[in-house]
Design a protein around this nucleic acid. Structure first.
Lengths: 223, 223
DNA sequence: ACCTGAACACCGTTCAAGT
DNA sequence: ACCTGAACACCGTTCAAGT
């Protein structure tokens, strides 16, 4: 027990602060989290918050920490190391897209390395299973992680800034796609992130892992 | 002529504002660019700046615009489409690293698409030369662009936040690298971005382009 | 142990007023 | 056409003072 006397309203809790801060961030992004707004939301003085969480930066840090901890495990799926690598990458991307502000916040705080440790471990296993050892194995793991994080950063950014300045069409239809109208159309249409991501990761994994793109290690041959 | 009477000090110019703003950003990043600091640097009232550039946001936009315009052309090098793709990617990364704050600023303003149009055009040509047409060609171009931009974003971020929280070593040496001390060491040592980048792009290009990793289209066969 | 208001040192921006 | 100071509405944070 917290040793409170029998007061009705349990006064302010670090827990409450974090919870309503998390709600604010979830709705309007970290930029909208203001100590004063947060205090108003909580019905306390601004300065009370400082007693519980220190300051704005450590409040945000705690939020990131908590969100990262809540992310579920990544279970690789697929018959081949390459496919399991792709499945880990896709699951990781899914997680990140489910918490729209998380990547940027982790990014800004330099917590990337820690955040992606579970994914890294999963990838180490798969890369190892594919026969890579030592430095090349480490490089393969990191190449995939960089690829996923980078992709989601770019993708999320596109979503946040929907009105691309020069209209995106006239940007693409003049140029070098001279005699390939299908290419010009595809470029003007904009990317399909889901598809693009899968293709990219698959290509990368195939390029990095020593075995061919479709080797199965056991089970019946494809018919 | 600008119609000024014969005054000695030519008064404030939009050009001057942009120049000293650029200097401030170059030194300490866009976060350090304050209208008041800028005014102090220029020796004018804060509000004069508003007359010349509108407001802070459009000032930053103009800076980005100018920097993007100053970037040199990307000339592909190499005997094979795949190699030329890699060379474009590397040149693009070089450009971005030479302007440390540029990517983030472009990123935040949603100008990514426009900024990378020259690179995109160069890539279209190479991908075309490799035999890709239509939608798959568009996808290959975008996969490479996403890869490069994402990589540099992650890389730049690591540089800005050098003190990774859990020490980076103890993060890596416990885990799944059970019987592979070389792997554990490589992971603990941290990435070599240059190398990692080249390996990643090469793997991606090899995975995306229809021809094998080392095909030469003309000239003597390898001996 | 927890909460408070006042105060400080910053922001970007607007506006009426000067020349 | 260009510059100015005053003022507004915000920030995060500190601190002495309350209970």
């Amino acid at each position: 027990m917290t040793g409170s006397s029998g007061s009705v309203r349990p006064s302010l809790t670090r827990e409450q602060v974090l919870a309503t801060a998390a709600a604010l961030v979830k709705q309007h992004g970290p930029g909208a989290l203001t100590m004063r707004k947060l205090a108003a939301e909580l019905g306390t003085a601004v300065t009370s918050i400082y007693w519980h969480v220190g300051n704005r930066e450590s409040l945000l840090e705690a939020l990131v920490e908590r969100t990262v901890a809540e992310l579920g495990a990544l279970t690789p799926r697929g018959a081949t190391p390459a496919r399991r690598v792709v499945s880990v990458a896709r699951a990781l991307r899914r997680q990140l897209l489910d918490h729209p502000h998380l990547i940027a916040m982790v990014h800004e705080r330099g917590l990337t390395e820690r955040m992606f440790q579970p994914a890294a471990q999963a990838l180490v296993r798969e890369v190892h299973a594919a026969g890579l050892r030592g430095a090349p194995a480490a490089q393969a793991v990191r190449a995939v992680l960089f690829q996923v994080v980078g992709f989601v950063l770019v993708e999320r950014n596109r979503a946040r800034a929907p009105a691309q300045h020069p209209g995106e069409q006239e940007l693409w239809d003049v140029p070098a796609a001279e005699h390939d109208p299908a290419l010009a159309r595809a470029l003007a249409r904009g990317p399909r992130p889901e598809q693009l991501f899968t293709v990219s990761v698959r290509a990368l994994a195939d390029g990095l892992l020593p075995t061919g793109p479709d080797r199965r290690e056991a089970g019946p041959p494809p018919r």
